[in-house]
Amino acid sequence: MNILTARAMISTGILLLTCLPLSGELGADVVLKRERLAALKQELSPKLKHWSFGTSDIGIWISSRSIQKVLDRLAAKPEENRTAHFQMTSCDCPILESRDLGIRRVDVKRLKMSLVLGRPESTIQTDGWRLKLPFQLKGKMHLKAKTILGKPSVGVDFGTNSAPTAFLEPAEGDGDHFAFHVTTRGDQTIPVTASAGLGQLGQLTLDLPVTLPRGTYQKVHIPKVLHEQGRLAFKIGDANIEKKYTVQTRFDPVAFQPSGLLFTADVKVAWAD
């Protein structure tokens, strides 16, 4: 064996010994790591399921608690910020008419009242959103009475506390809009009692229960599809690139859940050339 052959043999051997094991060991490690990751993902998967928004492209979930948080904040506002005022302009009167008593007839001449909102309570049910609205009603009315002894005019203070309930519930919309109705269900009556002294005729006590109109108070329409155009500007290296896009968002009907309101939508993004 001459020196040339010996050199060639040694260099071949060294190269083979150096390179072979490196590649093999690392490859096996990668395979092992992949297997471990697959097992870990499988273990985590069921724990993440209850976050899922299904096949929707975007999802918004607003917790019942945050809605109540807003209402609580509203209840903490100064009284003037949560007070509604009512002033009478006319009355289909009388509010009392009698042939048998000394008081023949009572008409309301003036009426002013204010309604102070308390702490509303929100409850989301699967068929809609229930809102209990406690309030304090206080007011003053001027009555004109027709009695056997004359026509006295008296001022009467009155007040009451009540808590009617309103519902926001889904209704049948059209092709382009979802519809929601703000309604009251069943009979809801606010008891109001006012009493005034009518001199020799004694005390006049009036029960004036206010009946809230049943049915739909307000209709709300929300578009099902929103279109938005925009531009995405980005910089790669030194180049500034700008592309225009159109986004179409098609909402699904809102899901009322005890834990919150769930909105989902499908989105289509189109890039302009």
Binding site: L74, Q87, T89, C91, I95, L96, V210, T211, L212
Partner: peptide
């Protein structure tokens, strides 16, 4: 709104919030 024997009409002023 209705009261027992009549109907009262008026203006309701709601506060800004």
């Amino acid at each position: 709104f209705e009261v027992e024997r009549g109907r009262i009409h008026g203006d309701l002023t709601l506060p800004a919030l």
